Computed example of a mutant assay.
Amino acid sequence: MSGAAEKAARPLRRDFGEIENLQVSLKGPDNFVTSADIRTQEILHRELSRARPGYGFLMEEGLEEAGDGEHRWIVDPVDGTLNFLRGIPHFAISIALERAGTIVGAFVLDPIKHEAYWAEKGRGAYVNDRRLRITPRSTLDGAVIALGLPHRSRGAHDLHLSRQRRIMQRVAGLRRFGAAALDLCYVASGRVDGYWETGLNPWDIAGGMLCVTEAGGSVVGLRRNSCPLITGDVVAGTPDIAIALQDCLAEADQQV
């Protein structure tokens, strides 16, 4: 994974310095794709296929292959495309390896900050060569929470504002960075204490989820016993903070 990501990152860094020359199109309202996304995906597909022939793929830019039915790469070539487009140096390449329905490996590369987050199931999570540990914070008091904002096409803005208002009353601050994979990695590294977002896709969160759990954290759905990879709604943090966020969000939903 690391070799494929690093090879894809080199032209991506160059493209980031020449944004005005990129071809940009819309996949939907507020959902952009650039020639850099496509090129990065092609490199990742080629390199991962060479490394593990026969593995399946689920990739953001419309590529899905069944493969051997046991192993599957889940890939977001550029997580945080809008940041990338606007020259904001906060985006990532996210790769996860799924085996028999379980995420067993992850590599999330921030190519601008040169931070490589990686994890193996049962073997811990790291950024570059440093072991990751979640924050020791156990309550929302004083916590810093990352979140995502719904695009205009997703609707439910009143519901989101109700949830945000409820959380704001309990924490020290909210942060919206614009790249779900890195939000999860920031939970794993202790930079933020928790995170929630709705309406995501498996490639947005698969890699970051494993980094959180291998760093000692918890990743759950918006509702108890729901799976983020299926629903697209994710809550992450320490085990105590994840539960507290779930409870706050449920309380907000009852008030709408």
Rank of each mutant, 00 (worst) to 15 (best):
35 S>F: 01
183 D>L: 01
226 S>G: 04
154 R>Q: 15
246 Q>L: 05
250 A>K: 09
131 R>I: 11
87 G>C: 03
185 C>P: 09
166 R>F: 02
207 G>M: 10
45 H>C: 02
81 T>G: 08
55 Y>P: 00
10 R>V: 15
181 A>D: 02
57 F>E: 03
157 H>F: 13
70 E>M: 09
69 G>Q: 01
209 M>I: 01
24 V>H: 06
113 K>Y: 01
7 K>R: 15
96 A>Q: 12
244 A>N: 07
53 P>Q: 06
227 C>T: 02
243 I>G: 00
121 K>C: 03
198 T>I: 11
232 G>F: 05
225 N>E: 12
238 T>S: 15
193 D>L: 09
99 R>S: 06
165 R>P: 00
198 T>C: 12
162 S>I: 00
62 G>T: 00
51 A>L: 14
137 R>K: 15
128 N>W: 08
54 G>Y: 11
23 Q>Y: 11
99 R>W: 00
120 E>S: 12
195 Y>K: 06
80 G>H: 06
69 G>M: 01
166 R>G: 00
199 G>N: 14
103 I>S: 03
106 A>W: 05
98 E>V: 10
89 P>Y: 13
58 L>F: 07
76 D>K: 06
26 L>Q: 11
137 R>Q: 05
61 E>G: 03
18 E>N: 15
230 I>F: 05
235 V>W: 09
230 I>A: 11
248 C>H: 01
89 P>R: 14
223 R>N: 06
48 L>V: 08
111 P>T: 08
234 V>C: 09
119 A>F: 04
175 R>Q: 12
140 L>K: 12
118 W>A: 12
122 G>K: 11
71 H>Y: 06
177 F>W: 07
51 A>E: 15
166 R>I: 05
174 L>T: 02
214 E>T: 00
165 R>V: 03
186 Y>S: 11
119 A>C: 06
155 G>H: 07
67 G>E: 02
18 E>W: 04
206 A>N: 02
183 D>R: 03
227 C>D: 11
180 A>C: 10
234 V>H: 02
254 Q>L: 15
173 G>C: 01
